[in-house]
Design a protein around this nucleic acid. Structure first.
Lengths: 106, 106
DNA sequence: TTGACATGTGACCAAATAGTCACATATGAT
DNA sequence: ATCATATGTGACTATTTGGTCACATGTCAA
């Protein structure tokens, strides 16, 4: 167990990653708005996932009246990166990634 | 479901993250060597975790005789980073992280 | 205040996962 | 050939997790 445990477990679910994608594309959405984009799941499911993301500080929220706005917080993701990729190695890894994308024709 | 699903699920377990830490500190270890550092778990448990990491391409291996050497591959981690942190935003996020570490006195 | 809207809680069930074990294969040394 | 070493497989169980529902709280408008 480590201090980023909540973050890693939060990112393990594809629905939660999709939620982060939605917030990356349009930050500051309400629960209802996010539910509309996930029609295959009930409101309760989405709410549960958002709570996990919030506990991991991947999403920060602001309550205004009866609405709650959700915002993406990229800091924990940067911390994941820094855990296994040192500043020295970083350019090298970026090069590997570019090479792979080139090979895969992406 | 997305293409990095194996990577995220692999990182969700603290034992697997510890294994990646071990390889970051000393790359190219055999199964037996990694088992020695995880005395609270049987060889089978460690092996199962390594297989998950290998399937996610977070670890690459090389068989030599009856031994199998394991190496850390940081590329998928870089891809996670790039998914939610754009090149433009990157300096900004690094600044936020530095600020937070400063505030927390770390 | 009455009713509609937006979000929240606890319990519940089905599916996925972590960990172990008995058993198996393959390699190197004697 | 024989035996110890290093790694591999399939089945099994306990625990965790994802998803849903009945029910509840708080907020805005007429």
């Amino acid at each position: 167990m480590d201090d980023l445990d909540d973050v890693f477990r939060a990112l393990a679910d594809p629905t939660r990653r999709r939620l982060l994608d939605r917030l990356r594309d349009a930050d500051g959405q309400t629960l209802a708005a996010l539910v509309d984009e996930h029609e295959e799941m009930t409101r309760f499911g989405v709410m549960k996932h958002l709570r996990v993301l919030e506990a991991a500080h991947l999403v920060v929220t602001e309550k205004v009246g009866r609405e709650k706005f959700h915002y993406l917080n990229p800091v924990p993701i940067r911390e994941i990166h820094d855990r296994w990729i040192s500043r020295f190695a970083e350019p090298h890894v970026a090069g590997l990634l570019a090479l792979r994308q080139h090979v895969e024709g992406a």
